[in-house]
């Protein structure tokens, strides 16, 4: 049973799908495409599809990575072609690779993710933003209040910001690589909160949009692309 790692887009309106929705959409597209999915054994067989590092609803991405197990032989090209016939614009598959069946699960391997944070309406100037990001990264500690099940916890998230820089694009934007997974995790929306808290984003900043461009795994102590 070949295991295939695929990379999908989640753009435009499809940003509003949840992780479970994505699994369902992919499962049905695979079934329509006539590709044979592998199913788990047991009372309630479910398809062997697992996405790495689910995104919050509303976040767009060009890097939704999933491991899918098929029943019978398939080639990555066939998968890309057949799936794209079934998937809408905004959810296309742009890469597929065969991976070792014994490889660690995608979930457990993921170590970091790279995001673009855009300010579409009002925000700081580029020069000002570059300076304040530099100052932010120079701090030893960045404290973030997190509420979970009613308990407020203060976490130092500085170690979870691996890199971060301001860029001028169509609009002003920030690119950041954040720790993701079991060995430390910083969600991009929490980074936005931190930036607001420490004055990197002035209060009048509106129209903040988050987009994921890369998922990274750790191999021999180095971060490399998951696909």
């Amino acid at each position: 049973m070949p295991r295939v790692r695929i990379r999908m887009h989640k753009l435009g309106r499809y940003a509003y799908l949840s992780h479970l929705d994505m699994v369902r959409v992919l499962e049905r597209a695979i079934r329509r495409a006539g590709l044979r999915l592998a199913y788990s054994q047991g009372f309630n067989p479910h398809p062997k599809i697992s996405f790495g590092a689910p995104l919050a609803v509303g976040v767009t991405s060009t890097c939704e990575v999933a491991d899918v197990e098929f029943d019978g032989s398939v080639s990555p090209d066939e998968i890309i072609n057949k799936l794209n016939e079934q998937l809408p614009e905004g959810m296309k598959v742009d890469k597929a690779v065969l991976i070792d069946r014994r490889a660690k699960s995608l979930m457990s391997e993921i170590a970091a993710a790279r995001y673009i944070i855009r300010m579409t309406l009002a925000g700081p100037e580029l020069g000002q933003l570059e300076d304040s990001i530099k100052q932010l990264l120079d701090r030893d500690q960045l404290l973030l209040e997190k509420t979970r099940d009613g308990d407020v916890k203060v976490v130092d998230v500085r170690p979870y910001i691996l890199d971060m820089k301001a860029m001028a694009g169509e609009t002003l934007q920030i690119e950041a690589c954040l720790r993701t997974g079991s060995k430390g995790n910083l969600r991009p929306d929490d980074l936005v909160t931190v930036m607001r808290q420490y004055g990197v984003l002035p209060p009048e900043t509106i129209g903040v949009r988050i987009h994921r461009i890369e998922l990274l795994v750790e191999r021999d102590g180095r971060l490399v692309s998951a696909i």
């Binding site: 435009g12 309106r13 499809y14 509003y16 799908l17 949840s18 929705d21 049905r28 597209a29 329509r32 609803v57 509303g58 079934q86 809408p88 905004g90 579409t120 129209g207």
Partner: peptide, 24 residues
């Protein structure tokens, strides 16, 4: 209308997937 709904309204609602269309 689509742009306004997708950009400004849906980030604020519960179950936004109800309002987006685009199904197979």
């Amino acid at each position: 209308l689509r742009q306004k709904v997708l950009n400004d309204i849906l980030p604020l609602v519960e179950k936004p997937g109800r309002y987006i269309g685009g199904e197979h």
